[in-house]
Design a protein around this nucleic acid. Structure first.
Lengths: 207, 207
DNA sequence: GTCTATACCCGGATAGAC
DNA sequence: GTCTATCCGGGTATAGAC
């Protein structure tokens, strides 16, 4: 079970100090073992890091699905908007969320591909789940007939834009953004069909 | 003029490798001097970093204002939407843009306050400029009467959300987001006045 | 599996000659 | 201002006893 303890400590340190900034000594100290003992469980810093990161993604995915499942009784808008304060809390409470975000933005230079192989499937999976959720809402009459895929991408974009302030701003800056940007998103997706008429030239049909 | 060369090399390395990852030796090598010679111009790594970062912010601010000035002939929507491809180009071409973004998201732990003293005024200044631009557009009849401050904040949020994909995604992922999120933003800000009626309860007035 | 001890390298920083 | 030489600390990693 030491392997599990090492992983958790590593998660915390990599999230706080970054890949280069984190030290194996500090991780070992926190677990209560000596530095070389780490090598009995992981082949080195890189190996430990990739295991920790994969674990972080798994955790965040699990928690996110839990959020949506546990708030199925909310109205669609409240359920979607609620993701933001929920994620702020998650970010402050869980090293997994912090590590995932940090490494998505700035992976260690030498591990770019390995990290992106975790990031992109995660984002794509979230987008697909969201897409399905919106389609269900339309079928239930909770949302007008809009292009759900586009709305899902726009939601992910808003999430990132607001999340950014959770990371590098204060709580008040994040709230300011949420209250300003949310109505824009929410009204925006309800009027998505208006654009088609503008873009498709008159009298033209899709080939 | 060596000080200037050191600053530029430092900018590049800090942007690529982060604060801890960048090494004074590599910077010195690029300039063509020896490591200790840096200390004739800067008191240490921290000092060099803060000078480079301040320079980066100054550069990005200057370039941004230039973009808006040089595209005054465009229609409002094209001018605003054009910020995104312009910024992608900027990010790929300029170490200043990369350093600014990276350090805004993940400042070196020990320099958090010093970095934020650069980040927040920059963001606030951009938001104010945008706000003024939207107000002018309303006066000229290019935009309906909407709360410009809210629209400005929402734009900055979209910018971050889409920019994120410039950083950690590919060019195709970024374009996908832009094309999905832009119409949502653009239609959204045109319908901002609708919300007030929904939120204020019937028969209630502000105390 | 875990320890002690240690090798090795590279980082930032300083001293002092030129 | 720039160099060579050096110090010190921290990092990763391994050898070998227990």
């Amino acid at each position: 079970m030491t392997a599990q303890s090492i992983l958790e400590a590593a998660l915390f340190h990599f999230a706080r100090d970054g890949y280069e900034g984190a030290s194996l000594r500090a991780i070992a100290d926190e677990v209560g073992i000596k530095k070389p003992s780490i090598y009995a469980h992981f082949s080195g810093k890189e190996d430990l890091f990739l295991h920790a990161l994969a674990h972080a993604f798994q955790e965040v995915k699990r928690h996110t699905l839990e959020y949506f499942r546990d708030h199925a009784e909310l109205a669609l808008e409240a359920r979607l908007k609620g993701v933001f304060p929920w994620f702020e809390q998650e970010y402050n409470a869980n090293a997994s969320a912090r590590l995932m975000l940090r490494m998505s933005y700035f992976p260690p230079p030498g591990l770019y591909n390995e990290v992106m192989d975790l990031v992109h499937p995660f984002l794509d999976g979230m987008e697909r789940s969201l897409n399905r959720l919106l389609q269900r809402a339309i079928r239930h009459g909770d949302l007008p007939l809009i292009p759900t895929e586009q709305a899902a991408i726009a939601f992910m974009t808003s999430l990132d834009g607001i999340t950014v302030e959770i990371i590098y701003g204060s709580s008040s800056r994040y709230k300011r953004r949420l209250e300003a940007a949310w109505p824009v998103f929410w009204h925006g997706i309800h009027h998505l069909n208006e654009q088609a008429q503008k873009i498709v030239p008159e009298g033209e049909t899709s080939s």
